[in-house]
Amino acid sequence: MIAMGFDNVYESIGEDNDDRHWAFGTGFSETLSGVEQSLPIGIDVNDLAAYCLMLGDDALVMSHRLQEWVARAPELEEETALANIALDLLGQARLLLTRAGVVAGSGMTEDTYAFFRDENEFLNVRLAELTDADFGALMARLFVFSSWRLAILKRLRASKDQVVAAVASKGAKEITYHRDYAAQWVVRLADGTDESRSRIVAGLCALSPFISELFTASAVEQRMLYAGVAADLADVRTEVVGVLLEVFSEVELEPQVLGAGYCALSARGGLGGELDSIRSQMMGEHGSGSGREGILMGAIALAEMGEHGSGSGREGIHTKAMVELLGDLQSLARSYPGATW
């Protein structure tokens, strides 16, 4: 099972390389080395810059939330895992925010974007900025976020913007690990004790008002899709629904768990009739949809009716949690402008 991977083992250690004296940790490479940096022809630069900000802000804000778990994760090993994931996302954010500045020709850098924009200038989806009640809720949110971002990045590998495509190509490998990591925790907790299962269910329920936003293209995203730069969110939704259902079925979670109102009713002890009517509403919403896929599609569509239903992070509309997050993220840079190590 452990294959050596080389026809001749001497080749593996005999590479011509200056750093051969290192037993570990060689062969680093830069994501953008050799990537065409010029602007794609015929693309609106403001739209492209905004699209890079959207993708970058999703990663930056989610990374910040993960960083908040460092020094308070339940186990040292998990803490390192969360920090690694946060660093992967931060790396993606840095490249994308830098690209936005270059494309816009605004003189903005990754730092000025991160530290000197106000809340309504951030274009991340609101799911990225939410706080997590506990480790279970974090795993539920990371699982949904990673499944969604992976589906997007996989499609962006063919983006007309070469920098976006390169970031997506590297990022897709990273996010594949994030999704696996989160999925195995969702399964472990949902399959564990009654208490651990209730934490996962509560975590998923808390996401329901913010799900439909993930699959609703803003005007910029629509134009970038037609221009061959952006991912098609309808395709993305199909893939994400498939992934969520696969994991949900493994631990017998009902797909309605992501639907608005369902969890609140469940928590109050069911109210049988009302739950049934929500279920059938969810199925109807997807037209011909039936079965588990139809229910989840319907749940996503109906989630718009939740209290946070109007507005979208892509238009700079955020939850209260975002204000507090930015206060934390930006306070140092704003108190000491130009500070360096």
Partner: peptide, 20 residues
């Protein structure tokens, strides 16, 4: 530390392969 072998592989990846 890990609950089982699969989790141990994840943890090993996160703790011991951070520098490539």
């Amino acid at each position: 530390h890990a609950a089982d072998a699969q989790m141990a592989l994840y943890h090993a990846r996160d703790l011991y392969t951070r520098r490539n």
